[in-house]
Design a binder for these strands. Sequence first.
DNA 1: AATAGTTATGAAATATTTTTCATATGAAGA
DNA 2: TCTTCATATGAAAAATATTTCATAACTATT
Lengths: 120, 120
Amino acid sequence: MKYFSYEENLISDVVLKRNLTDTCYGLFSTLANPTRLAILEKLRQGSMNVSALAKILEQEQSMISHNLKPLEKCALVYSERNGKEKYYKLNYDTMERIFKAVEDHANNFCPFGGMCADSK
Amino acid sequence: MKYFSYEENLISDVVLKRNLTDTCYGLFSTLANPTRLAILEKLRQGSMNVSALAKILEQEQSMISHNLKPLEKCALVYSERNGKEKYYKLNYDTMERIFKAVEDHANNFCPFGGMCADSK
DNA sequence: AATAGTTATGAAATATTTTTCATATGAAGA
DNA sequence: TCTTCATATGAAAAATATTTCATAACTATT
């Protein structure tokens, strides 16, 4: 993506308006991972610390940490430290909206068994 | 994912209720690609055939075809043949809703320049 | 400050996805 | 049916992403 400088006297609307494709790509590539989705789905039930997530999802702690990072960077989860532990909580505003949209889409368009998984 | 048979007399709700993580994974991995997002963004303006998309997005025709496939399988686009040409059109119901959710999220949470792109 | 518990990080090994190119398939007109 | 234009497909090569393991960093307690 190219940004223009002031000197060019050409403030394109790239600068003013966020580019949809780029914005979406960041979010969706973060969401396109089973571990991260499982984390998000788990956090719907309430906030949880890293090792609890690791245990419940039966994954290595480092795997959970690695995957929490992009989720937090995209602000799909927030974190809060409590002593040694760090609790992660879901960004409900965004995620419930997205989950609902996907759920509705699946109900309308994706037959059971033949869902758009393994689609590429 | 495991499905139970009738014989087991154990119709788990896996059978009745769609699994959120799996459903999302199919959709999001389809969406997590710059070419496919560009196609979707283009199709917001109206339906278009493959070679027109290829030209406008400056990509090989085979690349466009390859990428349209998962989009159609996920029902994010529909297709309609017109003679030799095949027109693809956006599933507005789903995509506008998702785009809006992402856009709002980005406006609320993602500072310009420091978006969640390259987040992993 | 030494220890124990919790989380984060780096980097190599694996695995998955994307891209490209050659070619096949399909549709329509001469 | 032969040719041309449009789209689809397969498979190898290239690019990216995930997983794993070792270990570092941080926090609280003794």
